[in-house]
């Protein structure tokens, strides 16, 4: 049973059990397929609509990645600025805390109104949603330089910029990584909400449309695509963290 030590195999076995149970429930209960399709039917829907799903998934994935990149870049730059300048801390921190209090998801309709039904409004929703967790995690890491290293910077007469990039940033990378983990969890939510509010493309749009037409199997198929996307993102991030540490 050595092969059981390999995590992906354990995950596949667990997934297999869950799918089997699901299929069993569908068979035994005789639930109509527009309420709950079995995994076999969802699998068939995935196969039959592969081209359609691919088309919409690509739109969603591009917006997701663009929003992530923009949000992370903005968050990192903000955190660096806050760490470097007490003035910026004084001015920007209350704004940030206020911004955090606004549920960004609720802004999606307004953003759609301003930016239209295309990609821009989705990218901006993702960006705004992940901006705060990335900024605050990274900023916290930057400000928590251990006392001996802060002393070192003073003894060595470090310039503020070099203190930031040679001591604070390397020390804050694990904190940034936890911010990125949050970002990767929130971003798929955000992009789907953006599409639900108003879109003519994307997995979120496809789910709404399939739901409206009673194509529940297609809806589940779209959901699986989205879950796959999230898993890929998470896996990529863990790889990144693994390289660093």
């Amino acid at each position: 049973m050595r092969w059981l030590n390999y995590a992906p195999i354990r995950a596949l076995i667990a997934l297999g059990f869950a799918l089997a149970l699901w299929q069993l429930v569908v068979w035994v209960s005789g639930v109509p397929r527009f309420i709950l399709p079995g995994p076999l039917r969802v699998g068939a829907a995935l196969w039959d609509n592969a081209a359609l799903l691919w088309e919409h998934a690509r739109f969603t994935a591009v917006n997701l990645l663009a929003g992530l990149a923009a949000g992370i870049a903005l968050g990192v730059v903000t955190a660096l600025n806050l760490a470097l300048s007490p003035g910026a801390r004084l001015m920007l921190r209350p704004v940030l805390i206020f911004a955090q209090a606004v549920p960004v998801f609720a802004l999606a309709p307004i953003l759609t109104l301003w930016l239209g039904y295309g990609a821009a409004s989705k990218i901006v929703v993702v960006m705004l949603v992940i901006y705060f967790p990335v900024t605050s995690a990274f900023f916290d890491g930057l400000m928590r330089l251990p006392a001996p290293l802060a002393d070192l910077a003073l003894m060595m007469r470090a310039t503020p910029l070099r203190r930031l990039f040679l001591l604070q940033v390397p020390h804050a990378l694990p904190a940034l990584l936890s911010g990125l983990r949050l970002a990767v969890v929130y971003a798929p939510f955000a992009v789907i909400i953006g599409e639900w509010v108003g879109s003519s493309r994307g997995l979120g749009y496809l789910m709404l449309m399939a739901n409206g037409r009673g194509q529940t199997d297609l809806m589940f198929a779209a959901l699986f695509c989205l879950a796959g996307m999230s898993l890929l993102l998470f896996g990529a991030l863990e790889k990144l963290g693994g390289i660093r540490s």
Partner: peptide, 26 residues
Amino acid sequence: LMAQGGQLLPWANLVQNVTIGARLRG
């Protein structure tokens, strides 16, 4: 100053740790 410990940069190799003063001053 040399303290009891904790002043080495865990992410930097020994050469980088020894030269950190110069690098911090530019």
